[in-house]
Simulated scan of single mutants.
Amino acid sequence: MKSQRIAVAGGTGGIGNHIVDGLLEVKDIYSLHIIVLSRSSKPAISFANSSALVIAVDYNNIANIEKVLNEHRIDTVLSTLSSDDPWLFQSSQNNLLTAALNIPTVFRFSPSEYSHDSEALVRTIPFFTMKTDILKPLRQAKTARGEDKFQYTLFHPGAFMNYLGYGNSKPEGDKALGHLAPFPFVFDLKSRKVDVPGDGERKMVYTTAEDVGRFVAAATQLERWEEHSNMMGSWVSFNEVIAVAEKLVGRLNIKYNTAEEIDQRIGGEDPSMKNLYLFIYKAIVEGKYEVTRPFNVNETVGKMVKPVSVEEFLHRWWEA
Rank of each mutant, 00 (worst) to 15 (best):
N102G: 05
F160A: 13
A243L: 05
A320Q: 04
L278R: 14
N162F: 09
D148N: 14
F279E: 09
F185I: 15
P86A: 09
A283N: 07
N275K: 13
N64K: 07
V291Q: 11
E311V: 11
T208Q: 02
P157Y: 09
V297A: 03
N102H: 11
E172M: 14
V216T: 15
G146E: 08
G200W: 02
A209M: 04
F109M: 11
V285Q: 02
A259I: 12
V305P: 06
V68F: 15
R265W: 13
P43K: 10
P126G: 04
S229E: 00
Q140L: 06
Y152N: 04
E71S: 15
E226R: 00
G233S: 07
S229H: 00
E226T: 01
I266D: 01
F279V: 14
V305E: 11
F215E: 06
E223K: 06
V205N: 02
G302N: 07
S79M: 10
K2I: 12
P307R: 05
N49Q: 11
V249L: 14
D195F: 14
A100L: 01
E290R: 11
G268M: 05
S83Y: 08
A56L: 01
V122E: 14
A141F: 13
I34H: 01
K247V: 13
L278Y: 15
L23F: 04
E172D: 13
L37P: 06
F313L: 12
E113G: 01
T300S: 11
N230F: 08
L314G: 10
A218M: 12
L101E: 07
Y166R: 06
T105Q: 10
K170L: 14
H116Y: 15
Y281K: 06
V20Q: 09
Y256M: 13
T258K: 05
